[in-house]
Amino acid sequence: MSELVRVEGLVVDFPVRAGLLRQRRVRAVDAIDLRLGRGEIRGLVGESGCGKSTLARAIVGLAPPSAGRVLLDGVPVPARRPPGMRRRIQMIYQDPGSSLDPRRTVSQTLAEPLRRHRTVPAERIGHRTRELLEMVGLGERQAHALPRELSGGQRQRVAIARALAVEPEVLVADEAVAALDASVAGAVLNLLSDLRERLGLTVLFISHDLATVRGLCDRIAVMYLGTIVEEGPVAEVFARPGHPYTRVLLDAVPSRDRRRSGAMARGLEGEPPSPLRVPPGCRFHPRCPQAAERCGESDPPEDRRDGQRVWCHFSWRDGQPYEL
């Protein structure tokens, strides 16, 4: 699988107001490396506020990186991307109520990017619009509807069709099904997986729902407080999670046959620490059930095991009993 998107040491800072005149910078994404192979569906999971969305926005070009870079097909993209480059990575948003212009009908929404890029000759725009709608499972009936006349699932399909109109190579889906109810979400997930098959799309699928990620994705990356703590093929990560945080996330998924018990099963205590005060050493250590002294002193090393990478001082060591 050839590499299509490569994120190298990406840092995204935000200015925040701290006090009356002082401004501080918050590091939402801290030196992240990530690779997306062509035609791969990559899951990105983590708690709210861990920087998933910021990473997504930086990859599509909506959030300017403070350091590091994004490479597309081996070519670094400039900070201000020209339209032709923006076209290649498209985004699907979480809120179907906000992703479509309320004053445009579905066909107007789809025709605009077609016209902008002259993807098809002017007289074929209508035809192409119908084709796109068909591709996402909508029909003539929805073509002249306004967004408010559509259901959430239908709007999300229109948003996908609009992204497909410019023939992108990468689709970044930021919690794209989180706002939909289960059956509709399932249909949209099937659509994404189907589009990957038919169009060879690469998808970065951001979610906090591990069950969904497991069903859809090839590889998964787990984020905690602006960094990736574990990364690897979905099957391996779910079978043998190497990072204690991943294990906590997996245990938080309700299931009939709970795999683990004891300290880990209790779930995570406390709120994720604020990115304004990043703990020293391993970022997870204040909440980690396995934390030892050195976790708070030095950055965790990278540990590899067939295709799976973990950043932890005690990767894959959850066998020992930890009395608290």
Binding site: L62, P83, R86, M91, S99, P113, R116, R162
Partner: peptide
């Protein structure tokens, strides 16, 4: 609103 950034990504100035 998301449609604004979406339009920018689609290639509009």
């Amino acid at each position: 609103r998301d449609y604004v950034s979406a339009s920018y990504l689609l290639g509009l100035s």
